[in-house]
């Protein structure tokens, strides 16, 4: 069954030639459990008028539920989402948190594959990838 995305925004612009629809101002996007907030979201349609790609820019924050029950919460400068393959590409000052395991991932480009549950991270020279996670203290475990 085809899936539905709901978008609310202050303004909307559709251009005939580019098969592009722009949602502008307090954009909130919801698809099943996944949510996204941004200043602008651009939706690119194919010739059959089906959405090919979503691009979110400006104050982008999101919640992504993976198929393997992981949940990512985070933000980025720009986000690209490809509906068919269920792939999120995050660009610029990416912060990705896994609340359940209290882990945080930071990088310049992160690709999150919803179906396989994989996340691929890239940094830049001046901004290496950073991975913050909690380590169990051995003594603490002995004292118990």
């Amino acid at each position: 069954a085809s899936e539905q995305v709901e978008i609310t925004a202050d303004r909307f612009e559709a251009s005939e030639t580019e098969r592009l629809t722009k949602f502008i101002g307090h954009v909130h996007m919801k698809k099943g459990p996944d949510e996204l907030n941004a200043s602008k979201v651009f939706v690119y349609f194919d010739k059959a008028r089906k959405p090919m790609r979503y691009e979110a820019v400006g104050n982008t924050s999101f919640v992504i539920h993976m198929d393997n029950n992981q949940t990512y919460v985070g933000r980025a400068d720009r986000l690209l989402y490809r509906p068919g393959k269920e792939i999120y590409e995050l660009f610029g000052n990416v912060v990705l948190k896994e609340p359940r395991l209290d882990r945080t991932l930071m990088g310049e480009k992160v690709v999150v594959e919803k179906i396989s549950g994989k996340a691929h991270v890239e940094g830049k020279e001046d901004k290496p990838v950073k991975f913050i996670f909690k380590v169990e203290d051995k003594n603490a475990s002995k004292d118990r």
């Binding site: 085809s2 899936e3 995305v5 978008i7 609310t8 303004r11 089906k50 509906p83 393959k85 179906i115």
Partner: peptide
């Protein structure tokens, strides 16, 4: 604006 966008089935 409130929009409902119907997508293709998953690949």
């Amino acid at each position: 604006i409130r929009a409902i966008i119907n997508e293709e089935d998953r690949i």
